[in-house]
Simulated scan of single mutants.
Amino acid sequence: MDSGLVTSSTSTAGTTGTSTTIKKELDKDAFLQLLVAQLQNQDPTQAQDPNQMVQQMTSFSALEQAQNTNTLLKAMQVQNQTMLQTQAVGLVGKMVEATTSQFDLSSGSSSMKLNLDSQADVKILIKDAKGNTVATLDKGNMTSGSHSVNWDGKDATGKALPDGTYTASVSAKNASGADVTSTLSTKVKVDSVFFNDGAAYIVAGGKQIALSDVTQIYA
């Protein structure tokens, strides 16, 4: 008996106007039908090997368990996504701290938080919306940990720059000249939240920040 695996098949009877489509995936119902057909069409002089029967039934059990597991995981995914959305909506109107390279300059004042993995010589480059470097903050040698960084909103010539959103990048080197891992964060007020491809984002002052980048929530 030919017991080759059938993956997919589609047939259409143009004269009768009917069509039949066989599933591409072999689910548990199709598995049982295939097993019954195999038993019904076996050669009476060469009965089905009991060992093969056990192997096939074991495969069927594993298939059913895998399908049940997939169903459960999908249900958990939907539940987790709903919980995430509920938590994200609750942030609207609150102050949060988020990891981001963007920060706001308002009335000649701005502040960021710099975190260093180890002691380093630090310089912070400030860029405007067009990507031009407008100022460089030479912070000198700084210890590991968190530090508050303030900027007076003036460019390299001492000219006050207009309020708006700026971008900062950090150059941190240890005594050997190797790069030291650093992150910048800022405190913002959440104006709204939105969701895209299962991920949540907050909107603060026109900036979009992934919810996963929020490191602290203030009451």
Rank of each mutant, 00 (worst) to 15 (best):
V122F: 02
L161Y: 03
D191K: 07
S212N: 12
G164W: 10
T143K: 14
T136C: 06
S101G: 13
S148D: 13
A135E: 07
G131C: 02
A98V: 15
A129N: 12
S182C: 06
K159F: 07
S182M: 09
K207S: 12
L137N: 08
N196S: 15
K207G: 01
S176E: 13
N174C: 09
L184I: 15
L211E: 06
A175Y: 08
I202V: 15
T181H: 11
V190C: 04
S176P: 01
G164V: 11
S109D: 10
T167R: 13
T136R: 12
D179T: 13
S109W: 00
D138M: 04
S107Y: 06
T157N: 15
G108T: 14
G177M: 11
S107F: 04
S107L: 08
H147E: 09
A88Q: 04
V134N: 12
V122S: 00
V149C: 04
S107M: 09
N174G: 09
T165A: 06
V149D: 04
V134K: 12
A210Y: 03
N132E: 13
S106T: 14
L161H: 04
Q208K: 15
V203D: 01
T136D: 05
S185G: 09
S171A: 14
S107W: 00
I126G: 02
A98S: 09
S144K: 14
G198F: 03
S144C: 00
L184G: 11
G158H: 04
F103A: 10
W151G: 08
D213F: 00
S101K: 13
G158N: 07
S182D: 08
I126L: 06
G131Y: 03
Q208V: 11
K207D: 09
T99E: 13
A199H: 09
T165G: 01
D121A: 12
T167C: 06
T133L: 00
T157G: 08
Y201C: 06
L116Y: 04
D117T: 14
S212G: 05
L184V: 13
D117W: 01
A135K: 08
S169Q: 15
D155A: 09
K154N: 14
S148W: 00
A135T: 06
S192F: 02
M142P: 03
N132R: 11
A160K: 14
T183A: 15
T143S: 15
L125V: 14
A200N: 08
T186Q: 05
I202W: 01
T167Y: 13
D152L: 05
S176V: 10
G158E: 08
S109R: 06
S144I: 01
G205P: 11
V89F: 08
I209T: 05
S185N: 04
